[in-house]
Design a protein around this nucleic acid. Structure first.
Lengths: 144, 144
DNA sequence: CAGCATCCACATTGATACTG
DNA sequence: CAGTATCAATGTGGATGCTG
């Protein structure tokens, strides 16, 4: 019965920790803001307010669905404001809040890091992939 | 023929931009590093080198699959080193590189932002969700 | 101990068509 | 113009079993 108990205990532990992580709000938030579109929208809106169609053109790879969805999420999280102007046709403007701008500062830094270190990363990848080819040698070494 | 041409042009534009985005290496990199597990692994390894089993225990919610996969990605990108010690049983240590540590500095800032602003975000969400309930009024206003 | 291979469930995303 | 609704494809991650 020992083994089945061990398995049960493992499962219990994992379940506990999952609950802990699911609770952890800062982690959820981190996951949200590091989403692909959020990042792009932050920098698109960094220069000031933009209309829906402007955003759509600024980030042409985004579908209406994801654009709307991301904007709604950001609005809900207080990162931007959505202003509807009653006219024909309707006009909707999006603008970063103070909170949104403060986040953008950080994300810009991360983006800059990515741009600055791209070459390092790509070199590392090339090196890694080449090493993969000569793996047999590593295997020999491992056998002493 | 005007409409079909417009559609074709749109598609062409989108295709062009997609190619542009797919090329954009800093964006790819950004997507990679903002992955859930990468973030956790960075902070787990911030204190120094760790063994595979240590990491597994430090981040209990990660499956072996994702742990291994994430570590390989980070190794490939030059964010950490993987050291195999031939012994029985085998021992594998992971340690952040200088590049990895420099990234961790930024990600820690973002993490801190998330922790500091959690309350703001949650308040905003509550406000948004409450406003949703009284949406009928907004609809009336919109009709002037 | 530190993985890899396989299968599978689910969430995310995209394409398409339609609307106030 | 600024969306909504729906369906299909894709990807991501987890569970399981096996290995050097």
């Amino acid at each position: 019965m020992a083994t089945s108990t061990a398995a049960a205990r493992r499962e219990q532990e994992r379940s506990d920790y999952n609950a802990y992580l699911a609770e952890c709000p800062s982690h959820n938030l981190l996951a949200q803001i590091s989403s692909k579109w959020i990042t792009l929208l932050l920098s698109a809106l960094a220069g000031g307010s933009m209309r829906y169609s402007n955003l759509s053109r600024a980030i042409p790879s985004v579908s209406q669905k994801m654009l709307t969805q991301s904007l709604r999420t950001m609005e809900r999280d207080g990162l931007l404001t959505r202003t509807v102007t009653a006219a024909v046709p309707v006009r909707v403007d999006y603008e970063l809040t103070t909170l949104g701008r403060s986040l953008n500062v950080l994300m810009t830094q991360v983006k800059n890091w990515a741009e600055s270190n791209m070459d390092n990363v790509y070199d590392a990848r090339r090196g890694y992939d080449e090493r993969e080819v000569e793996d047999p040698i590593a295997a020999l070494n491992r056998r002493g």
